[in-house]
Design a protein around this nucleic acid. Structure first.
Length: 203
DNA sequence: TTCTAGATTTCCT
DNA sequence: GGAAATCTAGAAC
């Protein structure tokens, strides 16, 4: 199990170091294991794309002001849940958005949550889009706001070390065109050539 | 393979 | 009221 100290570091470092690691989640007697293949860093009070820009604190984002290793779940566009891991201390409301995962345990559990079908019955389009986006992974892992504010140090939800032998691609974040100067910050990281990454840089 | 509209909670950035 | 750290179905090409 990865310890709290791992998350109490520079948020960009945590975002990069989370790549390749494994999420272990237990829910309803199902064990999910999935490799983190894409992340984004949200750099707190100085990052216009971050919910805590300018030290804003609301009922929704208050979890970002918790300790390193807290799980922050929030809903966007009224329907999709997004999962973040909080980094650093209470004075630094920063975190890492998990954007894409690669299923490692029984893949039917993921596809049933997503589409209500076994993996073998998915269309090619559905297989390609199983867990390659932040709203999709929460659906696939059956994650909702019940996990908001929990931490990453229980038997039911924790992170394990794993692969390190891969190349990291750095790119701009996705879906934050409103964020003026912050929209082009190179705060997105993903594993090169992994098929589960949501959006690959051209060239 | 690309586009569009629509889903609908939380906060006004 | 309007937009958001998004995704889907259905249409068009």
């Amino acid at each position: 199990m990865i310890k709290r100290e791992f998350f109490d570091r520079d948020t960009l470092e945590v975002a990069k170091d989370l790549l390749g690691k494994i999420i272990i989640r237990r829910d309803n007697n199902i064990i999910y294991k999935a490799r983190i293949v894409e992340t984004e860093a949200y750099m707190g009070i100085e990052d216009r794309a971050c919910q805590t820009f300018g030290n804003r604190k609301t009922n929704r984002n208050k979890i970002m002001y918790e300790d390193a290793g807290t799980i922050y779940i929030y809903q966007t566009y009224g329907i999709h849940y997004l999962m973040n891991f909080i980094t650093r201390d209470k004075n630094h409301p920063e975190g890492v958005l998990i954007r894409a995962i690669e299923p490692l345990s029984e893949i039917d559990n993921f596809s049933l949550n997503r589409f209500g079908l076994k993996y073998e019955n998915l269309s090619p389009y559905q297989k390609k889009n199983l867990t390659n986006g932040p709203g999709k992974i929460t659906k696939a892992l059956a994650i909702d706001k019940k996990l908001n504010g929990k931490n990453l140090f229980t038997e039911n939800f924790y992170i394990e070390d794993d692969l390190k032998d891969f190349q990291i691609i750095t790119d701009k974040r996705i879906g934050i065109d409103y964020a003026k100067e912050a929209k082009d910050y190179p705060y997105r990281f993903y594993i090169k050539d992994n098929p589960y990454v949501s959006k690959v840089k051209k060239g």
